[in-house]
Design a protein around this nucleic acid. Structure first.
Lengths: 107, 107
DNA sequence: GAAATATGACACCAATTGGTGTCGTTATTA
DNA sequence: TAATAACGACACCAATTGGTGTCATATTTC
Protein backbone atom coordinates (compact mmCIF):
# COMPACT_ATOMS: atom_id res chain seq x y z
CA UNK A 1 0.00 0.00 0.00
CA UNK A 2 3.09 2.18 -0.06
CA UNK A 3 2.21 4.18 3.03
CA UNK A 4 4.10 7.29 2.08
CA UNK A 5 4.45 10.66 3.73
CA UNK A 6 5.00 13.69 1.46
CA UNK A 7 1.91 15.61 2.44
CA UNK A 8 3.57 18.74 1.13
CA UNK A 9 4.65 20.02 -2.26
CA UNK A 10 8.30 19.16 -2.83
CA UNK A 11 8.73 22.18 -5.09
CA UNK A 12 7.60 24.51 -2.34
CA UNK A 13 9.77 22.78 0.23
CA UNK A 14 12.82 23.38 -1.91
CA UNK A 15 11.94 26.96 -2.80
CA UNK A 16 13.57 28.37 0.34
CA UNK A 17 17.37 28.94 0.40
CA UNK A 18 17.58 28.04 4.08
CA UNK A 19 15.94 24.71 3.42
CA UNK A 20 18.22 24.02 0.48
CA UNK A 21 21.20 24.70 2.72
CA UNK A 22 19.76 22.31 5.29
CA UNK A 23 19.51 19.59 2.67
CA UNK A 24 23.10 20.22 1.69
CA UNK A 25 24.32 20.04 5.27
CA UNK A 26 22.52 16.74 5.74
CA UNK A 27 23.89 15.43 2.47
CA UNK A 28 27.41 16.05 3.69
CA UNK A 29 26.98 14.80 7.23
CA UNK A 30 24.67 11.77 7.07
CA UNK A 31 22.94 12.62 10.35
CA UNK A 32 22.80 15.78 12.45
CA UNK A 33 20.94 16.93 15.56
CA UNK A 34 18.93 20.12 15.55
CA UNK A 35 21.36 22.14 17.64
CA UNK A 36 24.22 21.45 15.24
CA UNK A 37 22.13 22.41 12.25
CA UNK A 38 21.03 25.57 14.02
CA UNK A 39 24.66 26.53 14.60
CA UNK A 40 25.07 26.90 10.83
CA UNK A 41 22.54 29.71 10.60
CA UNK A 42 22.01 33.12 12.07
CA UNK A 43 18.37 32.54 12.86
CA UNK A 44 17.13 30.93 16.05
CA UNK A 45 16.49 27.28 16.79
CA UNK A 46 12.71 27.59 16.42
CA UNK A 47 13.04 28.90 12.87
CA UNK A 48 15.39 26.11 11.83
CA UNK A 49 13.09 23.59 13.44
CA UNK A 50 10.18 24.92 11.40
CA UNK A 51 12.14 24.64 8.19
CA UNK A 52 13.00 21.06 9.05
CA UNK A 53 9.33 20.39 9.69
CA UNK A 54 8.53 21.58 6.19
CA UNK A 55 11.23 19.34 4.74
CA UNK A 56 9.89 16.46 6.77
CA UNK A 57 6.35 16.98 5.50
CA UNK A 58 7.75 16.88 2.00
CA UNK A 59 9.48 13.60 2.81
CA UNK A 60 12.90 15.11 2.22
CA UNK A 61 14.06 14.56 5.77
CA UNK A 62 13.66 11.86 8.41
CA UNK A 63 14.15 12.44 12.08
CA UNK A 64 14.68 10.19 15.07
CA UNK A 65 15.08 10.92 18.74
CA UNK A 66 18.34 9.90 20.36
CA UNK A 67 18.39 10.78 24.02
CA UNK A 68 17.47 14.38 24.40
CA UNK A 69 18.35 15.30 20.85
CA UNK A 70 16.49 14.93 17.57
CA UNK A 71 18.71 13.83 14.72
CA UNK A 72 17.91 14.56 11.11
CA UNK A 73 18.79 12.59 8.04
CA UNK A 74 18.43 13.34 4.34
CA UNK A 75 15.98 11.46 2.14
CA UNK A 76 16.59 12.76 -1.36
CA UNK A 77 14.14 10.45 -3.12
CA UNK A 78 11.28 12.96 -3.39
CA UNK A 79 13.56 15.19 -5.46
CA UNK A 80 13.07 12.67 -8.22
CA UNK A 81 9.69 14.21 -8.88
CA UNK A 82 11.32 17.54 -9.70
CA UNK A 83 13.98 15.87 -11.78
CA UNK A 84 11.36 14.13 -13.90
CA UNK A 85 9.42 17.36 -14.25
CA UNK A 86 12.50 19.22 -15.44
CA UNK A 87 13.35 16.45 -17.89
CA UNK A 88 10.37 17.45 -19.98
CA UNK A 89 11.76 20.96 -20.44
CA UNK A 90 15.32 19.99 -21.29
CA UNK A 91 14.49 19.88 -24.99
CA UNK A 92 13.69 23.59 -24.85
CA UNK A 93 17.16 24.79 -24.00
CA UNK A 94 18.87 22.95 -26.80
CA UNK A 95 20.60 24.66 -29.71
CA UNK A 96 17.64 25.66 -31.86
CA UNK A 97 15.80 27.50 -29.15
CA UNK A 98 18.84 29.28 -27.78
CA UNK A 99 19.39 30.86 -31.19
CA UNK A 100 15.85 32.19 -31.14
CA UNK A 101 16.48 33.60 -27.71
CA UNK A 102 19.55 35.53 -28.88
CA UNK A 103 17.47 37.09 -31.63
CA UNK A 104 14.91 38.31 -29.12
CA UNK A 105 17.54 39.71 -26.78
CA UNK A 106 19.34 41.63 -29.51
CA UNK A 107 16.41 43.74 -30.56
CA UNK B 1 28.81 41.25 -19.50
CA UNK B 2 25.88 38.97 -20.15
CA UNK B 3 23.25 41.43 -19.03
CA UNK B 4 20.81 38.87 -17.79
CA UNK B 5 17.40 39.14 -16.21
CA UNK B 6 16.45 36.53 -13.61
CA UNK B 7 16.11 38.90 -10.69
CA UNK B 8 14.07 36.27 -8.94
CA UNK B 9 14.71 32.84 -7.49
CA UNK B 10 13.88 30.19 -10.09
CA UNK B 11 13.05 27.69 -7.36
CA UNK B 12 10.45 30.02 -5.89
CA UNK B 13 9.03 30.82 -9.32
CA UNK B 14 8.43 27.15 -9.94
CA UNK B 15 7.05 26.41 -6.49
CA UNK B 16 3.51 27.37 -7.45
CA UNK B 17 1.28 24.85 -9.29
CA UNK B 18 -0.41 27.58 -11.32
CA UNK B 19 2.95 28.78 -12.57
CA UNK B 20 4.02 25.26 -13.44
CA UNK B 21 0.83 24.85 -15.43
CA UNK B 22 1.56 28.11 -17.22
CA UNK B 23 4.98 26.85 -18.20
CA UNK B 24 3.42 23.70 -19.50
CA UNK B 25 0.85 25.55 -21.56
CA UNK B 26 3.57 27.68 -23.09
CA UNK B 27 5.69 24.62 -23.76
CA UNK B 28 2.88 23.11 -25.78
CA UNK B 29 1.84 26.24 -27.63
CA UNK B 30 5.00 28.19 -28.44
CA UNK B 31 3.34 31.58 -27.91
CA UNK B 32 0.12 32.61 -26.20
CA UNK B 33 -1.58 35.90 -25.31
CA UNK B 34 -2.67 36.62 -21.76
CA UNK B 35 -6.37 36.20 -22.40
CA UNK B 36 -5.90 32.70 -23.79
CA UNK B 37 -3.76 31.68 -20.87
CA UNK B 38 -6.31 33.11 -18.49
CA UNK B 39 -9.03 31.01 -20.10
CA UNK B 40 -7.24 27.90 -18.84
CA UNK B 41 -7.72 28.85 -15.18
CA UNK B 42 -10.55 29.66 -12.87
CA UNK B 43 -8.88 32.73 -11.44
CA UNK B 44 -9.10 36.17 -12.98
CA UNK B 45 -6.86 37.81 -15.51
CA UNK B 46 -5.02 39.93 -12.93
CA UNK B 47 -3.97 36.87 -10.98
CA UNK B 48 -2.65 35.08 -14.05
CA UNK B 49 -0.85 38.22 -15.10
CA UNK B 50 0.87 38.37 -11.72
CA UNK B 51 2.00 34.77 -12.00
CA UNK B 52 3.40 35.51 -15.43
CA UNK B 53 5.24 38.50 -13.98
CA UNK B 54 6.90 36.21 -11.45
CA UNK B 55 7.91 33.81 -14.19
CA UNK B 56 9.23 36.72 -16.21
CA UNK B 57 11.34 38.00 -13.32
CA UNK B 58 12.81 34.53 -13.04
CA UNK B 59 13.61 34.62 -16.74
CA UNK B 60 11.34 31.67 -17.45
CA UNK B 61 9.08 33.63 -19.73
CA UNK B 62 9.47 36.33 -22.38
CA UNK B 63 6.66 38.61 -23.48
CA UNK B 64 6.09 40.90 -26.43
CA UNK B 65 3.26 43.17 -27.38
CA UNK B 66 1.38 42.42 -30.56
CA UNK B 67 -1.41 44.87 -31.20
CA UNK B 68 -3.51 45.10 -28.10
CA UNK B 69 -2.41 41.75 -26.75
CA UNK B 70 0.67 40.64 -24.84
CA UNK B 71 2.00 37.32 -25.99
CA UNK B 72 4.06 35.06 -23.78
CA UNK B 73 6.71 32.59 -24.72
CA UNK B 74 8.57 29.97 -22.71
CA UNK B 75 12.26 30.28 -21.92
CA UNK B 76 13.18 27.07 -20.14
CA UNK B 77 16.90 27.79 -19.82
CA UNK B 78 16.83 28.99 -16.19
CA UNK B 79 15.49 25.56 -15.21
CA UNK B 80 18.98 24.33 -15.84
CA UNK B 81 20.00 25.75 -12.50
CA UNK B 82 17.53 23.47 -10.75
CA UNK B 83 18.56 20.52 -12.85
CA UNK B 84 22.18 20.98 -11.87
CA UNK B 85 21.24 21.40 -8.24
CA UNK B 86 19.25 18.16 -8.28
CA UNK B 87 22.07 16.32 -10.02
CA UNK B 88 24.10 16.52 -6.84
CA UNK B 89 21.42 14.64 -4.92
CA UNK B 90 20.85 11.90 -7.46
CA UNK B 91 23.53 9.75 -5.92
CA UNK B 92 21.46 9.59 -2.75
CA UNK B 93 18.54 7.71 -4.26
CA UNK B 94 20.46 5.13 -6.24
CA UNK B 95 20.44 1.49 -5.22
CA UNK B 96 24.14 1.16 -4.49
CA UNK B 97 24.21 3.96 -1.97
CA UNK B 98 21.14 2.83 -0.14
CA UNK B 99 22.77 -0.56 0.34
CA UNK B 100 25.96 1.07 1.51
CA UNK B 101 23.92 3.16 3.87
CA UNK B 102 22.33 0.08 5.39
CA UNK B 103 25.76 -1.48 5.89
CA UNK B 104 26.99 1.57 7.70
CA UNK B 105 23.92 1.61 9.86
CA UNK B 106 24.32 -2.02 10.87
CA UNK B 107 27.79 -1.71 12.30
C1' DG C 1 19.71 16.19 43.22
C1' DA C 2 20.78 20.39 40.92
C1' DA C 3 22.24 22.66 36.89
C1' DA C 4 22.68 22.74 32.13
C1' DT C 5 21.23 21.09 27.45
C1' DA C 6 18.14 19.99 23.61
C1' DT C 7 13.90 20.20 22.23
C1' DG C 8 8.66 20.77 21.48
C1' DA C 9 4.83 23.62 21.71
C1' DC C 10 2.97 27.95 21.78
C1' DA C 11 1.72 32.79 21.08
C1' DC C 12 2.87 36.41 18.47
C1' DC C 13 4.28 39.54 14.55
C1' DA C 14 5.73 41.72 10.02
C1' DA C 15 6.20 40.82 5.35
C1' DT C 16 4.94 38.23 1.41
C1' DT C 17 1.71 35.77 -1.45
C1' DG C 18 -2.19 34.87 -4.16
C1' DG C 19 -6.25 36.36 -5.03
C1' DT C 20 -10.07 40.07 -5.95
C1' DG C 21 -12.30 44.32 -8.21
C1' DT C 22 -12.00 48.78 -10.62
C1' DC C 23 -10.33 52.34 -13.66
C1' DG C 24 -7.98 54.12 -17.68
C1' DT C 25 -5.74 53.37 -22.11
C1' DT C 26 -4.80 51.36 -26.45
C1' DA C 27 -6.36 48.40 -30.39
C1' DT C 28 -10.00 46.22 -33.01
C1' DT C 29 -14.17 45.78 -35.02
C1' DA C 30 -19.00 46.72 -36.25
C1' DT D 1 -17.28 56.86 -34.52
C1' DA D 2 -18.94 54.01 -31.16
C1' DA D 3 -18.68 49.76 -28.86
C1' DT D 4 -15.83 46.06 -27.45
C1' DA D 5 -11.64 43.53 -26.30
C1' DA D 6 -7.02 43.09 -24.10
C1' DC D 7 -4.34 44.81 -21.00
C1' DG D 8 -1.55 47.56 -17.23
C1' DA D 9 -1.70 49.66 -12.95
C1' DC D 10 -3.73 50.13 -8.68
C1' DA D 11 -5.88 49.56 -4.18
C1' DC D 12 -7.26 46.19 -1.34
C1' DC D 13 -7.70 41.83 1.41
C1' DA D 14 -7.15 37.14 3.72
C1' DA D 15 -4.03 33.55 4.37
C1' DT D 16 0.55 31.93 4.53
C1' DT D 17 5.40 32.38 5.57
C1' DG D 18 9.46 33.09 8.09
C1' DG D 19 10.97 34.84 11.83
C1' DT D 20 10.92 36.00 17.14
C1' DG D 21 10.57 35.00 22.33
C1' DT D 22 8.90 32.23 26.22
C1' DC D 23 7.65 28.28 28.87
C1' DA D 24 7.52 23.39 29.98
C1' DT D 25 9.71 18.90 29.75
C1' DA D 26 12.94 15.19 29.15
C1' DT D 27 17.85 14.01 29.31
C1' DT D 28 22.66 14.59 30.63
C1' DT D 29 26.15 15.91 33.48
C1' DC D 30 28.44 17.71 37.61
Amino acid sequence: MSGKHQERDVYAAVADPTRRKLLRLLADAEELPLYELTAQFQMGRTAVSKHLAVLKEAGLVVDRKVGRETRFRLNAAPLKEIKDWIAFYEKFWTERVSVLKKMLEEE
